[in-house]
C-alpha cells in the first residue's frame, strides 16, 4: 500500500467517508463519516445486541 499523504502532523490516520456496508438486504453501515486521530483511543459504541461498530472495525481491516 503506497502512502499518498504525509504521516506526520495532524492528518487523520484513518478517514472514513460515506461508508455503506450491506450484507444481502441488511444495511449494516449507513453513510458513516469519521476521522480518527493518531495516538488516540477511539471507542465505537452501540447497544449490546447491535453489531454496527464491529462492522465498521471489520471494514477497516
Amino acid at each position: 500500500m503506497e502512502q499518498t499523504q504525509e504521516q506526520s502532523g495532524n492528518a487523520p490516520i484513518l478517514s472514513v467517508t460515506d461508508l455503506n456496508l450491506h450484507y444481502g438486504n441488511a444495511h449494516a453501515l449507513k453513510g458513516v463519516n469519521l476521522d480518527m486521530a493518531r495516538h488516540q483511543v477511539t471507542a465505537f459504541m452501540d447497544r449490546p445486541v447491535v453489531a454496527s461498530p464491529r462492522c465498521c472495525a471489520v471494514s477497516i481491516a
Partner: peptide, 18 residues
C-alpha cells in the same frame, strides 16, 4: 468481507491517505 458473498461495501476508508 471478501469472504462473505453477500457483502457489499462502498464509500472510502483512507489509511494514511491510501
Amino acid at each position: 468481507n471478501d469472504l462473505v458473498e453477500s457483502a457489499r461495501i462502498d464509500g472510502s476508508i483512507l489509511f494514511n491517505g491510501a
